[in-house]
């Protein structure tokens, strides 16, 4: 993962031996912590033990009647800090949390921070997916792969271009979602019959471009390779990729702003595209 920091778990402990915090402070505290990337649990005496085993760092907050207890994880996997918040308002408690986080030497992804990473990646609806491999064929960035049973899966989230829902648009079954997308059905809305019909039309449009987008790319890459070998000019190869991207732009499948941000030189080489074509053909033969 590009950024694999686990959220720090904050537990608002309001069980025995504590005074419950006011609902206003609970709300302000919870909202602020979530907006900073923390996970928050509110726990009263009804809580069952043994939870939060997957958390690597926990901060326990409570208005303790006596001194804040020292809590240890017997397995030693989870680091825990406890803070008594008696008499503190939510701003002061947030300062306590920050101080505890520093003590734990724990980091986490922060929403909205400068250069913040956005969780943008395709999510496959396997109730709809027919394993046709259109997405794998189409994506130039190796986001997709197959598992041991040749089932399509998302393997490289980080390769996905933020705000690009192109693979979702070429999926004939409307089986690919981007939950952070603004509109349906790409955002996960229920799929209607008209969505399926519209997606089928898009596939027909790509067919008009020359087989499908991938074939179009492949053909163009082959032509480019031929010319490239004759002319031995890197500029020519780059120009070819640019022309290919313009064609994609005209198809309307990839958003212009995403295309504009693409570093053309980072696109796969003609050889890489051809290698992918061979692998795809082999896969489809096995399935067939």
């Amino acid at each position: 993962m590009k950024d694999s920091k686990n959220p720090i778990q904050v537990i608002l402990y309001e069980g025995s031996g504590t005074t419950p915090i006011s609902s206003g402070d609970r709300l302000a505290l919870t909202a602020n912590l979530l907006d900073q990337g923390y996970s928050v649990s509110r726990v009263s005496q009804n809580a069952s033990p043994g939870k939060n085993q997957a958390a690597s760092a926990i901060i326990v907050l409570g208005q303790f009647s006596e001194a804040a207890p020292e809590i240890m994880d017997a397995s030693g996997k989870t680091r825990i800090e406890t803070r008594d918040t008696t008499g503190l308002n939510h701003e002061s408690i947030l300062e306590q949390v920050e101080e505890a986080r520093e003590s734990l030497d724990a980091e986490q992804n922060q929403p909205g921070a400068n250069g913040a990473w956005k969780p943008w990646f395709p999510v496959i609806d396997y109730d709809r997916c027919t394993n046709c491999m259109q997405c794998l064929s189409f994506c130039l960035f190796d986001v997709y792969g197959v598992d041991d049973e040749k089932q399509i899966q998302v393997q490289n989230n980080d390769n996905c271009k933020t705000n690009c829902p192109a693979c979702s648009r070429v999926c004939p079954e409307v089986a690919i979602m981007f939950p952070k997308y603004t509109s349906g059905p790409i955002n996960g809305e229920p799929v209607r019959q008209q969505d399926v019909e519209r997606e089928s039309m898009k596939v027909d449009i790509t067919a008009l471009l020359g087989g499908d987008i991938y074939s179009s790319l492949k053909t163009r890459s082959e032509k480019a390779k031929s010319r490239f070998s004759k002319e031995r000019s890197p500029d020519k190869a780059l120009d070819e990729r640019k022309r290919c991207m313009i064609k994609l732009q005209q198809s309307g499948i990839i958003p212009p702003e995403v295309l504009a941000e693409l570093d053309l030189e980072s696109l796969p080489s003609a050889e890489a595209i051809q290698q992918k074509a061979k692998e795809m053909a082999a896969l489809q033969n096995k399935q067939g």
Partner: peptide, 23 residues
Amino acid sequence: CDSGRDFECVSDLCEMSARRDDR
């Protein structure tokens, strides 16, 4: 928060899924 019920809140399920968070 007004209900007095216990709860679990996460900053972003998509972010957790992207990291394949065990939690």
